[in-house]
Amino acid sequence: MSAWIDIAALEDIPARGARVVKTSLGCVAVFRTAADEVFALSNACPHKAGPLSEGIVHGKSVTCPLHNWVISLETGEAQGADEGRVDTYPARVEAGRILLDRSFLNARSAA
């Protein structure tokens, strides 16, 4: 069952930027692209756990600030020659508000 929860206004994240949502199970990075899409990913790069929310957002990818791994915001997969993936979570924008699905965030603890 999905349980969408209102996190913040879209404007609270700059376009081509990100902010984190803190949970007791670790941080989730919420990204906003130039086209105002939002994506939610675990905030730890599969390489050395770099904070992806601090990376440069381009197209639908983010570049990790620590060692320049490029991660797809859609799939969480590392791009190019690098291998690895981070968890992605359902996120959407409705009436200018960012919504995340609580049930998926919760499911992380079971994993």
Binding site: I7, A8, P14, R19, V20, V21, K22, T23, R102
Partner: peptide
């Protein structure tokens, strides 16, 4: 404000 988390969720509380 932009240096703070967007939100802090206590997931357990909701269950």
């Amino acid at each position: 404000q932009s240096y703070q988390p967007l939100a802090t969720l206590s997931l357990e509380a909701a269950e």
